[in-house]
Design a protein around this nucleic acid. Structure first.
Length: 592
DNA sequence: TTAGGGTTAG
């Protein structure tokens, strides 16, 4: 959070952006824009011929060498071309050259400059473009701020994004349009703040800028992702009443929500409704269904859907094949997955990094590290780069089979040449170190990260607390647990469960029970895992009566023993068969 | 001309 403040908020508050935003008047465009080609002072420019960075830079130099200079619109077209080609740093350097030479610029070029910085994940640099507007007397445009807000979200600087939005509204710097609302709502929704996004929609309904189909669809999608299908359908009906008709995207979000809940009948009826309104599913709609089926293990059904879409002249794409491959991997059918892989290549669809990650993960889960590593090496041979997910998957796989040395080697390789480690990486490393008793290594990494990273979340601390508990360092674990609230993190269900398990492992059952009550007092309610952890604690200490009492409490809350607890119970019964008589329900089952 | 919604991997 500290870093966010440095780059964003302080900057926002220290810089006066009250230079108000004005509407851009439409003007006649020169041939430079409309035909993508222009002839100026003997220099014939055709932007369609600009195919690579070299072409663009060469053209730029030709342009600045022409007297008089080509119009600013030609420079706009060139910058747009660079942006489309994703040459963001080139946009920055050519802009600097223009500034040095005193070539006139306009709002469009500045927008592209800001967007380039944002797409390079440097929204702070994008922000520092604002004074250039002032210096050149160019009024701010709503697009300027929309781009910046989106940039902050892209870097997960939610507070900066929202603060900027609020400042614009509060100080009347810029009247937010539907797009601005959509950017803020989407940014919030994608980061778990569905309710805030929903509130903004309600705010729009009461204000001047009425929500459009995109604003509604964003909230509907967020509700569906949260599993709140009921609220999503209510909102769908609301928008229909306002004559805002759902489109393919709205329907696809709803279908996704239904698939996630396994409500296949509803999927079928919504599908029919869509087609009834002459809205036909596209490849993304089919992919959503295919993915939903695969995640439920219904890969054969997914393949049927794929055949169906082909019959409807909708061609499966890379996402389709990847989803089906993952479906087979999840079921451990690696051969099938590799078939699908070959089929994809036969169809001239080049595998991407996600495809390799799916295969690597599938093989790692089956402990087939040799094959996983073959795919890993194939990535670079295919001219692709392993990403953070690739490395994390391999790391996890290495630790899973106990190849600590291999895991460390991969980590070093990643640090020297690969992507920047994320919290997943560190969680995997710490889990691995703790699993193999390398407590000192784990703690030294933990302390280093605590000092250097500002994005450490509760899940990260849970790994450390769990690791310490499992390695007999209950006091250290408990100290960290107690420290959580002082660093602004609330213990979640997992944190409590991990701590309860720590107490149980040491036979401190009273402390475990106290913690259980404490979590409920804090409105964090135990789940099946929490109860099973406690029952295992009782069984470990042969506290059968207490275990039976707890069992009743569990049953009352609709929870039951998991496989691990059942295993424990069988062992206890083996050693002391009389226990069986104390558990009538179980006795009946075991009579078989 | 620049900014907004739905699909695949840890």
């Amino acid at each position: 959070m500290k870093r966010i403040s440095r780059n964003g908020i302080c900057f926002i508050s220290s810089f006066d952006i009250s230079h108000s935003c004005s509407a851009i008047t439409t003007r006649a465009y020169s041939s430079c824009h409309t035909n993508k080609s222009v002839s100026t002072n003997g220099l014939k420019i055709n932007f369609d011929n600009v195919r690579c960075l070299y072409d663009a830079v060469t053209l730029f130099h030709q342009m600045i060498g022409t007297q008089p200079l080509p119009s600013v619109l030609c420079f706009c077209q060139l910058f747009k071309t660079l942006l489309t080609m994703k040459h963001y740093s080139a946009v920055v350097s050519l802009f600097r050259e223009m500034q040095k030479l005193g070539i006139p610029i306009n709002y469009f070029i500045l927008s592209i400059l800001i967007n380039s910085y944002c797409l390079m994940h440097r929204a702070d640099f994008g922000f520092s473009v604002l004074p250039i507007y002032l210096k050149n007397g160019i009024p701010f445009n709503v697009v300027t701020f929309n781009t910046l807000i989106r940039g902050f979200f892209a870097e997960n600087k939610v507070k900066d994004a929202v603060d900027l939005f609020k400042k614009l509204v509060r100080e009347n710097i810029c009247e937010p349009n539907e797009v601005m609302y959509a950017i803020v709502m989407n940014g919030l929704s994608k980061r778990g703040h569905t309710q805030k996004s929903f509130s903004l929609l309600r705010l729009m309904e009461q204000g001047n800028t009425k929500p459009d189909i995109k604003n509604y669809s964003i909230v509907i999608d967020a509700l569906c992702k949260d599993g709140n299908l009921h609220a999503a359908i209510n909102l769908l009906n609301e928008m229909k009443q306002k004559s805002i008709h759902p489109d393919i995207v709205t329907y696809s979000s709803l279908i996704d929500g239904m698939c996630r809940l396994g409500q296949w009948e509803k999927v079928t009826s919504l599908f029919a409704e869509m087609v009834n309104h002459n809205i036909y599913p596209n490849v993304r709609t089919f992919n959503i269904m295919i993915d939903g089926l695969c995640k439920e293990g219904k890969v054969e059904d997914a393949e049927e859907v794929m055949k169906h879409m082909v019959g409807k002249s909708v061609e499966p794409d890379r996402v389709t094949y990847n989803a089906i491959m993952d479906g087979y991997c999840l079921r451990g059918q690696l051969d099938r997955a590799r078939r699908i892989f070959d089929m994809m290549i036969d169809k001239c669809i080049e595998p991407n990094i996600i495809c390799y990650n799916i295969l690597i993960n599938g093989h790692c889960k089956k402990k087939k590290l040799t094959e996983a590593m073959q795919f890993f090496r194939e990535i670079s041979q295919k001219g692709l780069n392993p990403n953070i997910v690739t490395y994390n998957t391999i790391l996890q796989g290495m630790f899973e089979v106990g190849r600590i040395g291999g895991a460390k080697k991969i980590y070093v390789e990643m640090l020297s040449a690969g992507p920047i480690p994320d919290l997943y990486t560190y969680r995997t490393l710490l889990n691995g170190y703790f699993k193999y008793g390398l407590v000192e290594e784990a703690m030294s990494l933990f302390h280093k990260l605590e000092r250097t990273r500002e994005d450490i979340d509760i899940a990260f601390y849970n790994v450390v607390i769990n690791g310490l508990c499992k390695n007999g360092k209950l006091d250290e674990a408990h100290a960290i647990f107690e420290k959580l609230s002082s660093i602004g993190l609330l213990p979640d269900l997992r944190a409590y469960t991990v701590m309860i398990n720590g107490f149980c492992l040491e036979g401190l059952l009273d402390e475990a029970k106290d913690m259980l009550r404490k979590m409920e007092d804090n409105n964090c309610f135990p789940n099946n895992v929490t109860y099973n952890v406690i029952v295992q604690g009782f069984l470990r200490c042969n506290k059968i009566n207490e275990m039976i009492n707890f069992m009743k409490e569990m049953a009352g809350r609709g929870f039951s023993f998991d496989a691990t607890t059942a295993g424990f119970l069988v062992n206890v019964i083996r050693e002391n068969p009389s226990v069986l008589d104390m558990i009538p329900e179980l006795h009946l089952k075991n009579k078989k």
